[in-house]
Simulated assay, not measured.
Amino acid sequence: MHVAKELSLPCQPRVLALLMRELLGDVPNMRRVNQLFGGDPVLAAQLMQCANSSVFQMAGQVRGIAPAIVLLGARQLKGLLKKAELGLTVRATAGIDMAQFARISHATAKLARNLAALTGLDGSAAYMAALLHALGQIILHQTQPERVAVLNQEASIWDPRRPRLEAKHWGYSANSTTAALLRSWNLPSDVVASIQSLEAPMATESFDPMAGLLHLAVWCSRAKHVGWSERTMADTFPVDVALALGVDVDVVLQQEAIDWHQSMY
């Protein structure tokens, strides 16, 4: 599986501008900084890459956005944002609406954090993993545009059935590409493994609760986004995963509905 060494991962200019303004203030509101990083999967990914680099001697140990922000501090965060600012001149990724990409990733992350509270799992790690899980789509759209364009005619990247189609046509899914990228960036190995197996958490030799949680969060957010009816969602809901996690199917389906058109800012 190919992961380009130099990637053009486009962040949202508005989020970048808000972060720069916040960090240039005399007393930055770090809670606001946390919220802004948590709303952009590309900036969050770059933050996690930096925090888990050898520079801070914390490779493979930083599991959430908040501790990463504390570890870097204001000066390092400004440097990260200036580097991201240089990437704004990169052309948009064909086939992906990046504003929509960020909204759906953010909504999935919030749902994952809610499910973590129900299951006693690490909410910070669940949020971070769900926020970043779809980065592989950007990579594939940039490195294999013709192959991806063919599959896009069959199902959108947010269709809950999309990963199975990717595995059928390519032998792997975009989630595997995400996992390969995050592994190369030294993110926690257990979180990377959960992303790797999130599409088929029941197929692993030993059930990984975090992979199961991510599976439910991703499946539900995508089904809601593409407009599946309540009946369709109930009929196709991954009951076996919910049972393995020990959560009630109705509780999962009744999680607060997402307004996909509402700005997170």
Rank of each mutant, 00 (worst) to 15 (best):
V70K: 05
V90T: 15
V62Y: 01
G87I: 06
A92S: 15
K83I: 07
A84W: 06
A68Q: 02
L80M: 07
L86V: 13
K83Y: 09
R63P: 11
L77D: 00
T89F: 00
G79E: 12
V90W: 12
R63E: 03
L72T: 12
K83H: 12
G79N: 04
K82E: 13
A84P: 11
L86N: 15
G73T: 14
L71Q: 07
K82C: 14
A74M: 04
T89G: 05
I69L: 12
L80N: 00
R63M: 03
Q61G: 01
L81C: 01
E85M: 04
E85G: 02
V62R: 00
Q76Y: 03
G73S: 01
R91G: 05
L80S: 07
L88G: 14
L72A: 07
Q61A: 07
L77R: 03
Q61M: 08
L71W: 05
L88M: 13
E85R: 13
L81D: 00
K78G: 04
K82A: 06
V70G: 11
R75P: 08
G79S: 09
L72G: 08
G73K: 08
T89P: 02
L77S: 00
T93E: 07
K82P: 13
A92F: 10
A94K: 14
A92T: 09
A94D: 13
G64C: 03
A68H: 02
A94C: 10
T93W: 01
T93P: 05
R91Q: 06
I69T: 15
R75M: 12
L81N: 00
L81M: 06
K78N: 12
K83T: 15
Q76T: 08
G73Y: 12
A94E: 12
R91M: 08
G73V: 11
R63Q: 12
R63G: 00
V90A: 05
L71R: 09
A66I: 12
A68S: 07
L80A: 00
L71S: 01
V62K: 01
Q76V: 08
R75F: 08
L77Y: 05
L81F: 02
V70D: 15
V62A: 01
G87D: 14
P67L: 00
I65M: 10
K83F: 15
G73L: 01
G73Q: 03
Q76W: 08
V62C: 03
R63A: 03
T93D: 02
V70C: 14
V62G: 00
G73M: 02
A92H: 12
I69W: 00
L81K: 05
P67K: 01
L88C: 11
Q76C: 12
G73C: 02
G73W: 14
L80K: 03
A74H: 08
A94F: 05
G87R: 11
V90E: 06
A92C: 05
R91H: 07
A74D: 13
A74R: 10
L77K: 04
A68R: 02
Q76I: 09
A74G: 09
L72R: 09
Q61W: 09
L77A: 04
R91Y: 03
R91N: 13
V70W: 12
T93Q: 04
G73F: 03
A74F: 10
G64S: 09
K82Y: 07
A84V: 11
V62H: 02
K82W: 10
I65L: 09
Q61D: 06
P67W: 00
K78D: 05
V62I: 04
L88N: 13
I65E: 09
L88E: 10
I69R: 10
I69D: 00
T93M: 04
I69K: 10
